Simulated assay, not measured.
Amino acid sequence: MVWESSNGGNFWTDEDKKFRLYAQQRVLVARQRRVYQFKRRALWVALTVAGVALAATVARSAAPLRDKTAQRLPEINSTEVVTVAPGDSLWSIARRYSVRGTSTMDNIAIISTLNGDISGKLEPGQRLVVPAATP
């Protein structure tokens, strides 16, 4: 078959050129979309791995802290039971029934240990075991 061209050897018509450019643009857009999706997935994987690593680090570092706190706490000889009043918090109770020579945070740890590792919000009427006041 012999090709004859009236436009100087260019065998593509204007319609063919438009179609080829459109097809090339579609391929380019599809490639860019795949790259974007890959980057997005890689970011989610990296964030998930970082979150798991952070959670593991925090969990690992919290266990020795609890053990050190338990070793640092003084021995309690006597205790008393108190009823939580409206508006009371673990902080306010720890300050009110403090053991001599310890910080409020240590007193919270003592009260928490005496009551089975309580934490969070206290309910009015709830009964707590606290260290007895020393004379």
Rank of each mutant, 00 (worst) to 15 (best):
T69A: 00
A85E: 07
D16H: 13
V35Q: 12
T69K: 00
K17Q: 08
E15I: 13
W12R: 14
A30P: 00
Q24W: 13
N10R: 04
V49S: 12
W12F: 14
G9Q: 05
V58D: 01
R34E: 15
R72M: 02
P64H: 06
G8F: 08
L73V: 03
G9C: 06
L73E: 03
Y22Q: 15
R41L: 11
G51V: 05
V29F: 11
V45Q: 03
L28P: 03
N10S: 05
R72Y: 04
D16A: 14
K39H: 15
Q71C: 02
T79D: 00
Y22P: 07
V29K: 08
A50W: 09
L28K: 10
R41H: 09
V29L: 10
A23G: 04
R34M: 15
V35Y: 11
A42I: 09
R66M: 00
D16Y: 13
Q37H: 12
R34I: 14
G8T: 05
E75L: 09
A55R: 06
F38H: 13
L47Q: 03
Q32Y: 10
L90I: 05
V49D: 11
E80R: 03
A30Q: 08
V49G: 09
K39Q: 15
E15L: 11
R20H: 11
P74I: 06
Q24D: 14
G87N: 02
W12C: 14
A59P: 00
V82Y: 05
